Amino acid sequence: MKSQFFLDKNITFLNHGSFGACPKPVFEEYQRLQLELETEPVYFMQKSLVGYLKTARERLSKFIGCDATDLFFTPNPTFAINIVMRSLKLQPGDEILTTNHEYGAMDRTWNFYCKKSGAKYIRQNISLPIVSKEQILEEFWKGYNSKTKVIFINQISSATALIFPVKEICDKAQELGLITIVDGAHVPGHIDLNIQDLNPDYYTGTLHKWMLAPKGSSFLYVKKEFQNDLEPLVVSWGYESDAPGESQFLDYHQYQGTNDVSAYLCTPKVIDFLSENNWTEKSRACKQIVLDNYQRFCDLLNTKPICPITTAFLGQMASVPVRTKKPAELKELLYDKYKIQIPVMPINGEIYLRYSINAYNSQEDLDVLYKALQDIIATTDLIEV
């Protein structure tokens, strides 16, 4: 599969989780659409685009388990959550319950909103190591009280790479009458996703990570009862449109002026590529490599796993605790000297070395990492063991 990607052959690439990687057939479709746009931009923007977007939404909706009229494309999940955030009508003192494992950009988004609204962002501690799903649920709901109005949670955390029991959290939140917002940036194409089964009020996911789309392709799903409450982040021609489309929801959010949305339009090609290359089986093999190597790296670094080493908690990436006082220097050394692209991620006072495995990776890539860490431990003081 490595030949299907443009990735630099001189780099051991273990960081798919950050920005993904686009296969050549999908990228060729991306460029074809861009060329079509440039060949006749007026016709493309005024005639072709609406149909292309509808087809892309329909294909995506079947892939993620929801109705095609309940989602629209966004450049990234941060953009999507900003839309949701600005449409909430919380009062001073109302609380948004989340965990201390959320993505940094999301924490900043909610902190911004809380300064404006007077609401409070409650980062409930989920302690490590995780021992069970029940532990996560028990610790999470300790943050709930009568002031809680919104639940915000990532389905797979970025820094710690943990899979959270979002289905159980959404079910209880619905019973309590809470608004549920799920950040599924790492989910589509990575683990099974059926949005109707999860039953959140809002769900955002990324296509340019594990689904392999070109950069800048994500979506926001909104349950029908909340769609008319959602204000456009950018007001454009769809607002109070002279030629209304199939729904106000799509009019307000689907088209926001001149913009190259070719990445969105590649969605059918993306899904075809995954199907033609038996991606479910490839993903399963990648997950097995992740599991097979996790304890090995913990042993090398003299640290302990942060969760049970099973697919209940780990997908195609894993975060290994590493004791270092210089995470930025460690990351730079791994890249500059050993040609390994891998994040060294700080969160909650701890540091994690997070490796991602996709179909273009092999056991040999992790062996390269292992040998590099052995050398760093033997020759520098960057890692404490």
Rank of each mutant, 00 (worst) to 15 (best):
D8A: 07
N10C: 03
F13E: 04
G17S: 10
A21Q: 13
E28R: 13
R32F: 09
E36K: 12
T39Y: 10
D67R: 14
D70I: 01
F72Q: 05
P75C: 06
A80I: 02
S87M: 06
P92I: 06
N100V: 10
Y103Q: 03
T109K: 03
W110F: 15
Q124E: 14
W141M: 04
S146C: 03
K147W: 01
F152L: 15
N154M: 08
I156K: 00
A161L: 07
I163K: 12
P165T: 06
I169N: 06
V187W: 00
P188N: 13
L193I: 13
D197M: 10
P200K: 12
P200G: 06
T204C: 14
L212A: 12
L230K: 13
V234Y: 12
W237M: 15
P244M: 07
Y255N: 08
V270A: 01
V270N: 00
V270C: 07
I271K: 03
I271E: 05
F273Y: 15
N278S: 12
C286A: 12
V290T: 13
N302I: 09
T303S: 15
M317P: 00
P321W: 14
R323L: 14
R323C: 13
I357G: 00
N358I: 10
N361L: 10
D367K: 09
Q374I: 04
I383L: 06
